[in-house]
Write a protein that binds this DNA or RNA. Sequence first.
RNA 1: GGGGCGGUAGCUCAGCUGGUUAGAGCAGCGGACUCAUAAUCCGUCGGUCCCGGGUUCAAGUCCCGGCCGCCCUACCA
Length: 523
Amino acid sequence: MSAGSFYITTPIFYVNDVPHIGHAYTEVAADVLARWHRQSGDDAWLLTGTDEHGQKILRTAIANGVTPKEWADRLVETAWKPLLETVDIANDDFIRTTDERHEVNAQKFLQHLHDEGHIYTGEYEGYYCVGCEEYKQTSDLVDGTGDYAGQPVCAIHSKPVELLHEKNYFFKMSAFADRLLALYEENPNFVQPEAARNEVISFVRRGLSDLSISRSSFDWGIKVPWDESHVVYVWFDALLNYITAAGYGQNDEEFASRWPATHIVGKDILRFHAVIWPAMLMAAGIEVPKQVFGHGWLLVGGEKMSKSKLTGIAPRQITDTFGSDAFRYYFMRAISFGQDGSFSWEDLSARYQSELANGFGNLASRVIAMVVRYCDGVVPEAGALTADDLAIAATEQRVTDASRAFIETLAIHDALASVWELVDELNGYITLQEPWALAKNPDTRARLETVLHTAVGGLGTLTVLLSPVIPIATAKLWTALGGDGALADQRVDRAWEWTGGKHVSPLEPLFPRIESIVEPADA
RNA sequence: GGGGCGGUAGCUCAGCUGGUUAGAGCAGCGGACUCAUAAUCCGUCGGUCCCGGGUUCAAGUCCCGGCCGCCCUACCA
């Protein structure tokens, strides 16, 4: 496969949120895909960043006695960039919606839509809560009691809301319903997985109304270029990050080489990405995204993780005990990408123990230990190959191809399951060949060397194949195996070709046994 | 109210356009082995496929009706 552009994005973090494993999960998935493509010769580009405008942020900044920009700066540095380090994300760029490149070019986009007649002046009508200082959805309202019986009141303040009108600018999104439906029809992969696609289609079939894209009740946002008394609606602003980060408006060459992107999003924000966003792009005459993939929720105790139910888990709680590799592996392996998945400490420790420690980690230990013990660390040459040796080579090639195919469809869990067939087969091969028995008899020296050579080659293939998912442990192993160059430069699509370095060096357990798993208290 | 998805071994899940005795991993149990992180390998126990009808020579797999769970139902990002 020739080198192609692979531009992948995560949603940008709303800075006021508290980072939890759901955020980290999205990041890891996108990072694994980016690394995999990068190591397959593609020009991969991973973008992530932060969403920093909006009334809520303005309000919390004021409450903390700082400007909204200062508030956002603080959160970016103390919460969000550290999150990326915690789970070892190798992003190529980090965009903030307060970046000049974003604000300037988002305005350019908006002005363009305005010039082309996709925007008109309208009136927004909604229930406004004075206490909250914001418009409320009807779902946020409850029936009043006592003095307010019979009228809708704010669920937070229990005071009546006012029906207000505000001049707003509207985007003629309704005009794009047919084109959107045609897009979903002609390109079934545009929205995936299937369940997400169905939801989006049925939503659009019910008809689209126009979108209010400006606010004048507060000023923390991007100014509407032709009317600076308005700021751009946060979602409209936020979605544009995907193109402003890629050079839209300022570097046409770069933009042409990167766009369109694959968007990885949580299913909660699927609609914004699969409906509003492509409609915006259509209006601007820009190609729609390559794909919008909505992944599932992490379920804790069968329910969506949430702060209010105290089921929110900070990534550090996991990585402090198990490490970032285990975090990445666990969520990529245990959850079918695209579906909801259950998280439990029991499952995490069980998989850590059986798959990472006993399966892969122990395989690395036993292979290296035998080469050190029986061959003084020199990787032996292979002699005549038996059917068993050839079977290993065949499996190396098969799982390399299979995992690549699964990654193409974003089936990360299937790719890992495929790679693990090699882990299991190598463990079985070693047990069956009994190199420790071969080592006792000088007559079987050649056979011993062939077996160890085969085992080292297989382990090397695993190292390369797993490097996008568990980069730290595999890098250590790569060094121990005497691999040439940086592991991150090895081609994952040709992982099976590697047949061993010259020397191996002793290796500490990659995934040490964790004796007592104590469920961390709430952070 | 409308719509989507799901309910399969103790646990987490596979089972495509219906077709022989329903699968995997983990856990459990028994055995082998010792290179290795008390790891590995082999064997084994284990299921009214949510319930009730129906279509069919044949249904976990299609249809109807229930029950249960989660989610969406536009501008709270």
